[in-house]
Deep mutational scan, measured.
Amino acid sequence: MTYKLILNGKTLKGETTTEAVDAATAEKVFKQYANDNGVDGEWTYDDATKTFTVTE
């Protein structure tokens, strides 16, 4: 399945996607991606759209 991440960081905004077997796996990938890019904030997940959002 394809999962999407929306980044609403103070210095980085954008979107990315990943292929993962489940939401938990996608979340690990996205949290590492956000961490690597210096984005740390509040996370939400919408199962209907398979979209994670992180907002600083």
Rank of each mutant, 00 (worst) to 15 (best):
N35F: 15
F52A: 00
A24Q: 12
A26P: 01
M1H: 15
A24T: 09
Y33D: 01
F52C: 01
E19W: 15
K4E: 03
K50E: 03
A26T: 01
N37P: 01
N8C: 10
F52L: 01
T25D: 09
L5F: 05
E27W: 15
T44H: 13
T16P: 03
D36K: 08
F52K: 00
T2M: 13
A23P: 11
T53P: 00
W43F: 04
L12N: 08
Y33T: 03
A48I: 12
T17I: 10
T49R: 06
V29N: 06
L5C: 08
I6Y: 07
T44M: 10
T11E: 10
T44V: 11
K50S: 06
V29G: 04
D46E: 07
D40L: 13
A26W: 01
Q32P: 02
T25F: 08
T51D: 01
F52T: 00
D22M: 04
D47V: 12
V39T: 04
D46L: 04
N35S: 15
D22V: 03
T44I: 09
K28T: 10
A34L: 08
Y33A: 03
A24R: 10
N37S: 09
E56M: 07
T25E: 15
K28M: 11
L12I: 14
W43C: 02
D46Y: 04
K10A: 12
A23Y: 14
A23T: 07
Y33E: 02
T55Q: 07
T53W: 08
D36C: 08
T55V: 09
T11S: 13
D36F: 08
Y3K: 00
K28E: 11
D36R: 10
A20W: 02
A20I: 02
K4L: 08
T44D: 09
L5A: 03
T53K: 06
T53I: 08
N35P: 02
N35G: 09
G41L: 03
Y33C: 04
E27C: 12
T51A: 04
T51Y: 03
V21M: 13
T18Q: 05
T53R: 07
V54F: 05
T18R: 05
T11H: 15
N35V: 14
V54L: 09
N8W: 12
Q32Y: 06
V29S: 06
T11K: 13
E42Q: 12
F52N: 00
M1Q: 14
L12Q: 11
A26G: 02
A26Q: 00
K4M: 08
T49P: 02
V39H: 04
Y3N: 01
L7A: 04
T55N: 09
D46P: 00
A26F: 00
N37F: 15
T44S: 13
E19A: 08
V21A: 14
T11F: 14
V29I: 13
K31N: 04
T25Q: 13
E42A: 11
E42H: 13
V21W: 13
V39M: 08
A20P: 01
W43H: 01
E56S: 09
V54Y: 03
V21N: 12
Y45W: 04
N37E: 08
E56L: 07
K31T: 05
T18V: 14
G38T: 04
E19H: 12
A48R: 10
N35M: 15
V39W: 14
N37C: 11
T16S: 08
T16A: 12
L7V: 14
G9M: 12
A23N: 06
D40Q: 14
L5S: 01
G9R: 04
A20T: 05
T51V: 06
K4P: 01
N35W: 14
Q32L: 09
G14W: 15
T55F: 09
D46Q: 05
Y33Q: 03
E15I: 13
K13C: 11
E42K: 11
L12D: 05
T18L: 12
N8G: 04
E42C: 10
N37K: 14
Q32N: 08
T44K: 09
L5N: 00
Q32E: 09
K28S: 09
N35L: 14
K10I: 14
E19Y: 15
G9P: 03
A24L: 12
A34R: 01
D22P: 01
Y45Q: 01
A34K: 01
L5I: 04
V54P: 00
D46C: 08
A24Y: 11
F30V: 02
M1R: 10
T11D: 12
L12H: 13
T18A: 08
V39E: 03
A34V: 08
I6F: 06
A24F: 12
T17N: 06
V29C: 07
G9Q: 04
D40H: 15
A26C: 02
D46T: 05
N8P: 03
D47P: 14
N8K: 13
L12R: 07
G41I: 01
V54K: 01
E19L: 13
A20C: 06
A23M: 13
K31W: 08
M1E: 13
A34M: 06
Y45G: 00
E15V: 15
D47Q: 09
E15K: 07
Y33L: 05
T51E: 04
T49A: 07
E15C: 13
T55C: 06
A26M: 01
K4V: 12
A24W: 11
V54Q: 01
M1F: 14
T49E: 06
D40M: 14
A24E: 12
A48P: 07
Y3T: 00
F52W: 07
T16V: 15
N35A: 15
I6W: 04
Q32D: 06
D36Y: 09
Y45H: 02
T49Q: 06
G38A: 07
K10N: 10
G41F: 03
K13Y: 10
G41Q: 02
V21R: 10
E27H: 11
T44A: 08
V21C: 10
K4G: 03
G38E: 06
D40S: 15
V54M: 05
V39K: 02
T51G: 02
N37W: 14
A26H: 00
T53F: 09
T49C: 05
K13A: 07
E42N: 11
